[in-house]
Structure formats: structure tokens, C-alpha cells
Amino acid sequence: MNKNLLGLAPAYLVMLVLMIIPLLIVVDVAFMTSDPYGGFKQVFSLESFQQILYNVDWDDNLVLNLQYLKIIGRTLLLSAITALICVCIAFPVAYYISRQSASRKTVLLYLVTLPFWVSMVVRVYAWVLILSNDGVLESGLRLFGLVDDMDSLLYNNGAMLVGMVYSYIPLMILPIYASIEKLDINLIEAANDLYSNRLKTLYRIILPLSKPGIVAGAILVFVPCLGTVLEPMLLGGGKTMMMGNLIQNQFTISRNWSFGASLALVLLAIVLIFLMLQALRAKRVQAGEV
């Protein structure tokens, strides 16, 4: 037998059985009828996709239901805002790190990546500890007499945003740092020499040249945010859902597998569209059209 095939076979086997076939099953399940007793029945229907948009009332009429569209919209919006906030913080930080001495750079980069190695659940929990009712922040503020009693800081969009930025910002800093490091520092001096001030140099030289890093970082943050589960569950509470925990609920609490599968396909489609747009852009950049 061919040695190449033999070496690749285990990887293909795992991916085929545990990844590709399951995905095909998801597609299959999404087009099945959900079983009111959990799971699904082998009857073809578009019911589960219809459920994303419409409710069925007592007279079997379709009634537009914006509940799930809102969740999809919130997911896209919060993910985009997270990516934006991450860019705004990560760019100055990455630039600041790149201007340090070699040994300090290594240490700072280590500090940036370190939280990444710490359990995600633990990191999100740290924010629960800080933001919860009678939590560390509130007690601290009360201690200094700044507040008397305050609304809970948890269970809202703001808390989710803080958690998501906190979880994913290292993914933004590293690519931006890499592209700033590649930037020839002489270019800044050349711009300065040609009568450009700091602000103009930033907008005309540094930002355009670090664009690949910013775009890469934005994708790296945005895409996992779309499917994130922990932040909406622990910091957003039950009321402010995102697609990740909505899907998860269909398989745990609601046991509506067909609906869950169709939502998973919608999420997959959104992610693939963004990845494809990015790939097209990368191709155009490579071809020198942008």
C-alpha cells in the first residue's frame, strides 16, 4: 500500500467520521421534523427553518416572530462591537510593546498570551465575582462611600461585552503586533523627515501598513465570538442570549434537535460567509488590487 496514503489515513479517518459525517447528519437533522418528546422524526420538513422566523398560532397561521432574529442580530452586533473595541485597545498596546527593548518585549508578549492558557471558565468566573450583586466591585465602591445600592452589573449586554473583550483580546494583539514588528521603523522617520507630524504619520503610514494584522485580528476575534457560549450564559444570564447558547439550549433544555440543527447551520453559514469574504480579500490583496 502507498506509504503516503497510510500516513494520512488516520487523520482522514478521524476527520471523516467525527467531523464531516456528523456535519452531514446535522444538515439531515435540520430538515427533519422535531419530535415533541425530544430528538427528531425521520420526516422531511422545513419546519425548523420556518421556526426561526414564524410562530404557529392556534389556528395554524404563521405569525412573524422576531425573537430569534433578534438573537441573531444581537450576536452579530455584539461580536462586531467586541472586535471593534479589541482593535481600539489592541493597536496602541501592540505598538507600545513593539517599541520596547527585546527582553521586555518577550516578557510583555508572554503576559499577553498567559491568560489564554488559563481555563476560559475560570477567567469568565473572575468577572462574575467582580460584577455580581454584592460583588467585589460593588463592595469596593460601597466601602469608599461612592454608591449606596446599585443595580446588578451582571446580566446585560455590557457585562457580556466586557467578558468577550477580555476573553478574545490576545487574539487581536498578536497579529497586530506581528504586522507592526514587520513595519520598517525607518518609514516612520522618513515620513517625519518629509514634514509629517505624528498624527498624520499614524494615519498615513502606520495604520495602512498594519492593516493585514488588524484584519486578521478582527476575524480571529469576530468568528469565535459568533459561537461563544460561556459569556452569554454566565454574564448575560438567561435573558440576553446569543446564538451559541441558543443552539446549546435546543440540545440540552428544549431538546428540539431539528431546530437546534437548523440554527447551527445558520451560524455555520454566517461564519463561512465571513471567512470567504476574508479569503477573497486576501486574494485581491495578494494580486495587488487593493
Binding site: L18, M19, G227, F251, A264
Partner: peptide
Amino acid sequence: NLPLMLPEIVFAVAILIL
């Protein structure tokens, strides 16, 4: 590299059904 490209929740759901 497929697992890096898919949102993990989709993978999780898929493998659960499998």
C-alpha cells in the same frame, strides 16, 4: 485544519447527534 474553521458549538452539536 477543519476544526479550526468551524465554530466549536457547531462541531459539538454535530458530534452529539452522531
